[in-house]
Amino acid sequence: MFRLSDKGWLRLAILTGALLVITNLVMNVGEEYLRERFEGMRRKAYFENVISRKGLSLKEARHWRSVEDRENQEAPVIK
């Protein structure tokens, strides 16, 4: 039977708690980034495996703009 002293139990509890806190922090920070990456990979795979194999057209569309361009245009001018 695995036996620990009171001090040992305390250390284990602190370690577990710290591990949980760190895992939670990493997940919170990484979730957005990872989700975006996975979502992007999923979309790309869907495009390559499904959409592009269906023989649909890829005609350049009108009436669109780069979001970065728009943000640059809308940014306040600082003199």
């Binding site: 979309r43 959409i51 649909l56 057209s57 005609k59």
Partner: peptide, 28 residues
């Protein structure tokens, strides 16, 4: 719609591919 790479718009027929918007249904 603001579309990320390879994302299709709410209309289901316009897709952003590498920063350019394409129609999937031209002539279809």
């Amino acid at each position: 719609c603001e579309l990320e790479n390879h994302q299709v718009g709410g209309c289901k027929v316009r897709i952003n591919r590498d920063g350019t918007l394409y129609s999937l249904v031209y002539g279809k």
